[in-house]
Amino acid sequence: MNNPQLTASGALQHLLSVEGLPREILVQILDTAESFCGVTEREVKKVPLLRGKSVFNLFFEPSTRTRTTFEIAAKRLSADVINLNIAASSQTKGESLLDTVANLSAMQADLFIVRHAQAGAPHLIARHVKPHEHVINAGDGRHAHPTQGLLDLYTIRHYKKDFNGLTVAVVGDILHSRVARSLIHGLSILGVPEVRVIGPQTLMPARVEALGVRVFHDMRAGLKDCDVVVMLRLQNERMRGTLLPSAQEFNKHYGLTAEKLALAKSNAIVMHPGPMNRGVEIDSSVADGPHSVILPQVTFGIAVRMAVMSIIAGN
């Protein structure tokens, strides 16, 4: 089966998921992002690569961080950025997803950044855009959030230098997390020997072991000797169902405290995709502590999105 993300010659045409990307492309994105980090540190934080290109931020689901970092990344590449407030636009008047995209395409769009509650929506758009148009998935349902996965990989490589020999734990609501899925696929493509998922049975996807991870329900056992701890946001809406008794109960068993973190390696880093629920999945003492690289993740996210956009738009 041909990969819908790649051109006939194997170059990146769309970014829909980390799953199925060749290792060389992942490494190319991370290497390019490293060079863009240099750009973001200087006085004029702009390069002319996407001059004259139009980037449409199509967010059908609310997001502040991801939308903003995509917008900053596009602007630093000198693109024109158009943010669409979908909730207040045509879709509420009954326009179909593909009609919305066709209309934007008629306005000379070059890149669509798509977030949608429905898994597969960016794939659907990618199948219908013109050859010169590109789609980047900014999160679709529970399926994938590839640029978050990539910025997590970038952060790990930045602090740990190498993926060989690492033990990485992903903690919390694995079931609903597109962030976890994208990261786990990326870690596996880049050859991380041990990836652990830690959480209650009710928040574990069925057959999660098929992703090549070790499953832990006891957080203390799972954190032992980890190099990297990735905490996931516990979405409040999950508490309403029968999956969890309460936030306090979750915090007691799966919240990251300084005491639990001490079980990981002494130089372990703590990551979180945000937004954080302090006192639920992570304590403030850890979030603001010396192991936390949560804010650098946000900064790296801009360089990673610049890398993805400039590689894709040039192919």
Binding site: A11, S35, G38, V39, L49, S310
Partner: peptide, 13 residues
Amino acid sequence: YHKQGLHHDPKRT
């Protein structure tokens, strides 16, 4: 860039 795309492995200035 618009013809050739982004060069592989750009070094950091």
